[in-house]
């Protein structure tokens, strides 16, 4: 019983942080009274996440960077990229924050929208993601302005970890780099300032940029 209470308290703190501190603790309490989401299952086999978690990751990644006239996050394997980088590259503290944040994200969908995230309509999912995302982004903006904390030390909440890893996985993929951005492996020369229309196809160059952002 006392363990459960501890978990509840922790969860409240996490959700409050997820929401950028914008909602009060009593409101968050509602999160804890919801039921578990119905797993829809991921279309790939996660190695680190559960199937249910993988399905949410896949959906969120594809909302962030969907298929348009070019492939989207799901098409280029971003969900599996996120699963593997979490498993192999992240310290356990960050892994735990991602997973608990993911659960909180789903619980908050249930509380705010009445259904687990994956059972919401496409429009509802996007609106919900946007709301959570914007609160977290503005919280980090304020934090970054105040303290100049390096990106790698910001302990981003789930929604921003998702965005960071979706951007990273997508734009360092072959499709992202060559079809959405433009890429030349061996430029062979340097033109310092030319009309943008003459700079290849005029899209942004996929260059090795800072890997932590």
């Amino acid at each position: 019983m006392s363990d459960t209470r501890m978990n509840r308290r922790e969860l409240i703190q996490r959700v409050a942080w997820l929401m950028g501190g914008a909602i009060s603790a009593p409101a968050v309490l509602g999160v804890l009274n919801g039921c578990s989401p119905k797993p829809s299952g991921a279309s790939w086999t996660p190695l680190f996440l559960s199937k249910e978690e993988g399905a949410i990751v896949e959906e969120v990644a594809d909302l962030i960077l969907p298929r348009t006239d070019t492939p989207g996050a799901r098409d280029v394997g971003v969900p599996a990229f996120i699963d593997v980088i979490l498993k192999d590259a992240y310290p356990s503290e960050d892994q735990a924050r991602f997973v608990s944040g993911l659960k909180d994200f789903d619980s908050e969908a249930q509380r705010a929208q009445g259904k687990p995230f994956l059972q919401l309509s496409q429009a509802q999912r996007l609106a919900f993601l946007q709301q959570i995302h914007d609160a977290a982004a503005s919280a980090e903006h304020a934090q970054a302005d105040d303290q100049d904390i390096p990106a790698s030390q910001r302990k981003r909440p789930f929604v921003l970890m998702m965005k960071e890893l979706t951007l990273l996985g997508f734009f360092t993929s072959e499709v992202g780099a060559t079809q959405v951005l433009q890429y030349v492996a061996v430029p062979g020369g340097f033109q310092a300032c030319i009309p943008i229309a003459q700079a290849g196809n005029g899209k942004e160059w996929a260059t090795e940029t800072s890997l932590r952002f």
Binding site: L63, V180, E204, F213
Partner: peptide, 26 residues
């Protein structure tokens, strides 16, 4: 230089518009 797609990390744009902006030099 011109900023790349990492500039959009905390931008509020998501979805097709995010992809579009990322493909445009910052």
């Amino acid at each position: 230089g011109r900023l790349g797609w990492t500039r959009l990390m905390l931008d509020t744009t998501l979805g097709p518009d995010l992809k579009q902006q990322a493909a445009t030099p910052g």
